[in-house]
């Protein structure tokens, strides 16, 4: 038997599709009842009760240095586990459960900032869709004070991919 197709949860932030390993995901929820925690880092929206557990809810948009967006019907809280920690990630939407064949996954391209390598496990292109596979552990382990300029990193990644597809004449 060849290497199994790893299942992922796909989610969107600012029209970019990301993936997290399904096994890292404890469960997914709609965003309800977030209690703000005073003096917590800005990207921590607050705490939520998830299966009797008090966990932080992180706004990935804020974490990635993007503008906040009001919650809507599609906003999701992805409860992920990272080591001993359980954290909720707020994303624009998450509607897909997808098995990505290993051969479709490639390492993240080298970028100028080198940031993508830090928190991207790899990228996959499926049916012409670009999927960025997020390294949750890495994202969570980065010190709260450190800013993640993901938007810029994404732009870099996309540029890099574009350059690959259309090599300069």
């Amino acid at each position: 038997m060849t290497e199994r197709q790893a299942p992922f949860i796909l989610f969107q932030i600012a029209d970019t599709t990301y993936a997290v390993h399904s096994e890292a995901v404890q469960q997914m929820e709609m965003v309800e009842h977030i209690t703000p925690v005073p003096n917590a880092p800005p990207f921590v929206e607050g705490v939520v009760l998830s299966r009797g557990q008090v966990i932080p809810a992180i706004n990935l948009r804020t974490r990635f240095g993007l503008e906040k967006k009001p919650y809507d019907l599609r906003t999701r809280l992805i409860v992920v586990r990272s080591g001993e920690r359980t954290v909720g990630l707020i994303v624009d939407s998450a509607r897909e459960f997808l098995a990505i064949p290993p051969e479709a996954i490639q390492p993240p391209p080298d970028t100028a900032s080198g940031m993508s390598e830090r928190y991207l496990e790899g990228i996959a292109i499926l049916d012409k869709r670009l999927i960025l596979i997020l390294n949750v552990d890495a994202v969570l382990s980065i010190a709260p004070s450190e800013e993640l300029h993901l938007a810029e990193a994404i732009a870099e990644v996309k540029d890099a991919l574009l350059a690959e597809e259309n090599p300069p004449a």
Binding site: P7, E23, V25, M28, M30, R76, R95, F97
Partner: peptide, 17 residues
Amino acid sequence: AERTNLLSLNASIEAAR
């Protein structure tokens, strides 16, 4: 529909587990 989607995703996660 959204909730169903959510549920099915959770179901998928559990199933995968």
